[in-house]
Design a protein around this nucleic acid. Sequence first.
DNA 1: GCCGAGAATGAATCCATCC
DNA 2: AGGATGGATTCATTCTCGG
Lengths: 249, 249
Amino acid sequence: MTLTPYYKDGCSTIYHGEALTTIPNLEGLDAVITDPPYSSGGMFKNERSRPTVSKYVQSRTKAYRPEFAGDTRDQRGFLAWSTLWMTAAYHASVEKAHLLVFTDWRQLPTTTDAVQAAGWLWQGVNVWHKSTSRPRPNAFRSDAEFVVWATKGRMGKQDNKTATYSPGTLKASPPRERAHITQKPTEVLEWLMSLLPEDSLICDPFMGSGSTLLAAKNLGHRCIGVELSEEFCDHAVGWLKEPRGSGAH
Amino acid sequence: MTLTPYYKDGCSTIYHGEALTTIPNLEGLDAVITDPPYSSGGMFKNERSRPTVSKYVQSRTKAYRPEFAGDTRDQRGFLAWSTLWMTAAYHASVEKAHLLVFTDWRQLPTTTDAVQAAGWLWQGVNVWHKSTSRPRPNAFRSDAEFVVWATKGRMGKQDNKTATYSPGTLKASPPRERAHITQKPTEVLEWLMSLLPEDSLICDPFMGSGSTLLAAKNLGHRCIGVELSEEFCDHAVGWLKEPRGSGAH
DNA sequence: GCCGAGAATGAATCCATCC
DNA sequence: AGGATGGATTCATTCTCGG
């Protein structure tokens, strides 16, 4: 089966479609960096099944943000689904490829299970410390988002001359103006790409607004984005053509 | 069975013995805050009979840990053992008590499993960002230690007047002059105690050098420490009597 | 250009209320 | 009764704007 790109230029490709059916058509990936739907937002079914806008957004101005799909799975469903797409990503990747998956504290153990079930070698947990989070009385604030890091096989000997050293924890605030609820600061994505050699081929199977593609472009990598919602595909295309408000300065 | 304290003063009590057999004799705990051995260290005789020098020189957190993809019996053993002491701690605690357990990334999923298996309500994952870790070439540094947070039952209504707001992520380096290698910064322990009402009863079933007892004392709480190694017990007693180099300033 | 004051915001959570 | 909906709450940080 041949895929038809929704958009394509020198370094960016966007496919409009489902991750599970699209990833098996890809190959030669050096890294998979993505922020899948967490299916969090509550411990109970009725809370999870609320629309993402009402689950997650609560601001006075109520800026419009599109709904995103696939956020209603229960624990077992989330594990099974995660294992499926991660297995597909594994087969589409080259040896020693990197996998970097965002998750919140509730799904962290399930995500590490899925990563390993899919054949990846779990290497660690990175922390994105976002200082702008809502306070909770008599509780610890959940002001961290986690990134499960894994590789395809062992990394082997490294040349210390050209070696890269990256922190496992980064503090950064979400961008002021976001199209997607979960839109990441470019800084965070560039951090996660810091281990990659030049001109790597990256894939983000849950592209959203397209931050991963933009960060890859900034760093001189190629990137393939997959997104189910046409609204987000549109946004990403416009953003790639004219990255206004990209947060870069 | 009545326990005989190894040491006791107004706010601190130390029992020299095993956590599993000691905790069932305790009651009325408002919080359990501890850094258990991550591997099976302390569970088996060969670990316990190691020479004093290696116990003191080698950090407990750097102890041998099984390869992840390897034999899973150690993982299962760790889960079973963790569930046992956490269950005992649950029964020794009052309603709405807090549980705060240090763990590293490898044992984080097993720890959250054990916490929930023991009946505690998992509330989140705190991050201690310690900037003093060894860099690895071509890798993300593991510069974070995790703290699994849980409570005994739901927390219910909170009074907003007297409510406490605590961060979920803290950056702190170990004090330059440490009385003991395994010592955590007092700052970190005081952070974890920040949700507790005055004069709470805390328990650290894996006391080590006694940082938890010292932090509790600083904040006006009572604390019970349990420790298998007599050397550690001795050290803690000396430290409580004269807290030189405690990191407090 | 730098600094200080003021405003806006958050993958939240609890709880009352309605259907 | 039980599931779904909507309102109120809160502070650290960032952003904006004016002097």
